[in-house]
Simulated assay, not measured.
Amino acid sequence: MVDDVDTVAQFYRDVLGFDTTLETDWYVSLRFDGGELAILNRTHETIPEGFRDSVRGLLLNVEVPDAAAEHVRMVETLGLPERLSLRDEDFGQRHFIIEAPGGVLIDVIEPIEPSAEFSAAYAGE
């Protein structure tokens, strides 16, 4: 739920490659690789009173083949606000976090080999 549906939807289309499946003046449905993302105006009458505040505490994971290249594109070239710098994690991720328009955090993740300690925590194939 956001204030500016058009700007937020355009971000997901331009930066992350989502396709539009439905678009109105207050609601946009986007699809990427079988998943759906709905963006809607937080003041619309279908949103119950008391739940129209800005989004807080939402972290959207996006898996990419090369997190370092995406970091260059998103942070250095496009100037998107970086909230966690590019790093490798023992639990098997190279990632960084940006803030999308509307306040959603996007964790851009490249799977990497986890440390031996974390390998044991993964479920079998």
Rank of each mutant, 00 (worst) to 15 (best):
G103F: 01
P111M: 06
F91T: 06
F11K: 00
V28T: 11
T7W: 08
G102D: 01
L59W: 06
R42Y: 02
L22C: 05
V104Y: 00
H95T: 04
A120T: 14
T20V: 15
L30D: 02
E82M: 07
D6T: 15
L60S: 08
E110C: 08
R87D: 07
A120R: 15
L59F: 09
T20G: 06
L22K: 10
I109E: 02
R56K: 15
R56Q: 14
S29G: 13
F32R: 15
G35L: 14
I97K: 05
L78S: 08
E125H: 10
A100M: 04
R52S: 11
D53R: 12
V75M: 07
A121M: 15
E89K: 08
Y122K: 12
D88E: 15
D88I: 04
D107P: 03
R73L: 03
Q93F: 04
E49Q: 13
I97G: 02
I47W: 04
G124E: 15
A9W: 00
F18D: 03
S29F: 05
Y27N: 04
P81Y: 07
V108Y: 00
D25C: 08
E76Q: 12
D6M: 09
D4S: 12
A9T: 03
I98F: 00
D107A: 06
Y12W: 14
A116I: 11
R13S: 04
V2D: 03
M1P: 14
L40D: 07
A67Y: 01
A68I: 07
E117M: 09
E125Q: 11
L78V: 12
D88K: 07
F51D: 14
P111S: 10
D88T: 09
S119G: 12
L80S: 05
Y122R: 12
F118I: 07
S85T: 09
